[in-house]
């Protein structure tokens, strides 16, 4: 699992630019299931098990990660950008980026020594930052980068005991879990969707849910864990190492109560998401066609949407196990 996750995390794939992630996943799974790619780029993978459940089950993980899109090039050869997905400005300042998977750059701004008074204690506006690729002129930069090209903040993939530090854990953890399910789970049929464009508004999952037309869905995600120094227990949302996070409600979805309770009472390594924050592809999937009964299982991630997200391998395994349990549960549900 960890080798698979490492490969997935180190591929660059921002919203609408998931191509390399898609190519990698297709190569991994095509011997184990029927695959197709829809017009927006979602992978729809039909996995045959020993039995066909009464309810059609769809699993979803999104392929895209947060990143940047190049919006203009200055006379001096610096690149201006917009964010793809929610990234805090402090996670952008003075970060090394990679454009189109190959060109190195640095998100730069005014160095602190040249700021004055309050300016040196406040975050600059995101639109005052720019990417320096070392180009000395607009012409030189234009020879290397086109408008609309993508950049991601780069990171190593580091194992620290049970924990991992990497970019893109949201949601390559979900992709890794789905790939492993396709390879190893054989009880019931299911359809796995590797979706595009989650970070900019749940766009891929919306059309995939329409095509797949499931009765029930399981969304596999990474979710914010705030179990860090200085945050009270009532505000941590979920904790690393305590298992799969099951949501009863977030900003996009009120989840199917029965499925939520089934997961929470499974006796497995699970924890509730203890806040109504954020949202994921459930928001699009549960409203598809005449409605889809939806449950969400997440891996707790600290510093999510930064290039230094932290997750626990133990939780990833828990989500994998609980996901198998929930497929069985939904398949056998009256």
């Amino acid at each position: 699992m960890i080798e698979l996750l490492k490969k997935l995390c180190l591929i660059d794939g921002t919203s609408g630019g998931e191509d390399l992630v898609r190519d990698f996943i297709l190569k991994e799974i095509s011997d184990f299931c029927e695959t197709s790619v829809d017009p927006l780029g979602n992978i729809i993978a039909v996995k045959k098990g020993k039995r066909t459940p009464k309810r059609k089950i769809m699993l979803d993980a999104h392929m895209d990660e947060v990143g940047l899109i190049i919006s203009s090039i200055t006379e001096g050869g610096f690149l201006r950008f917009k964010t793809l997905g929610g990234i805090n400005t402090s996670a952008l300042m003075f970060r090394s980026v990679r454009i189109n998977g190959k060109i190195n750059g640095v998100i730069s701004g005014k160095p602190i020594h040249l700021t004055h008074g309050e300016e040196s204690k406040k975050l600059p506006k995101a639109d005052s930052l720019y990417i320096d690729i070392g180009a000395a002129s607009k012409e030189e930069a234009e020879g290397m980068v086109r408008l609309g090209d993508r950049a991601v903040c780069i990171s190593d993939f580091t194992e620290c005991g049970e924990n991992i530090i990497s970019k893109a854990l949201d949601d390559r953890v979900g992709c890794a879990i789905l790939i492993k399910l396709i390879k190893e789970y054989n009880e019931y049929d299911f359809t796995a969707v590797f979706s595009v464009q989650e970070e900019i508004g749940l766009r891929g999952a919306r059309v995939a849910a329409y095509s797949v037309n499931p009765d029930a869905a399981i969304i596999i995600e990474g979710t914010t864990a705030a179990d860090i120094s200085g945050v009270g227990d009532d505000k941590t949302v979920c904790n690393l190492g305590r298992g799969a996070v099951v949501s009863f409600m977030d900003r996009a979805t009120v989840y199917d109560r029965e499925y939520y309770l089934a997961a929470i009472n499974s006796g497995m390594s699970v924890q509730p998401k203890r806040a109504v924050t954020g949202g994921n592809n459930s928001g699009a999937v549960h409203l598809s066609r005449e409605g889809v009964r939806t449950v969400s299982l997440s891996v707790p991630c600290r510093y999510i949407h930064s290039a230094s997200s932290v997750a626990s391998l133990r939780d990833i395994t828990s989500v994998f196990e609980v996901c198998k349990y929930m497929i069985d549960y939904i398949a056998n549900d009256k």
Binding site: G86, A91, I165, T224, A226, A275, H305, S306, A307
Partner: peptide, 24 residues
């Protein structure tokens, strides 16, 4: 926030400066 560092203890280990979670 969210910057990676090397901590030079008995052995060198990777760490991350905490960043404030979005809901806080």
């Amino acid at each position: 926030p969210s910057r990676q560092v090397d901590i030079h203890g008995k052995k060198t280990v990777r760490g991350v400066f905490c960043s404030t979670p979005p809901h806080l």
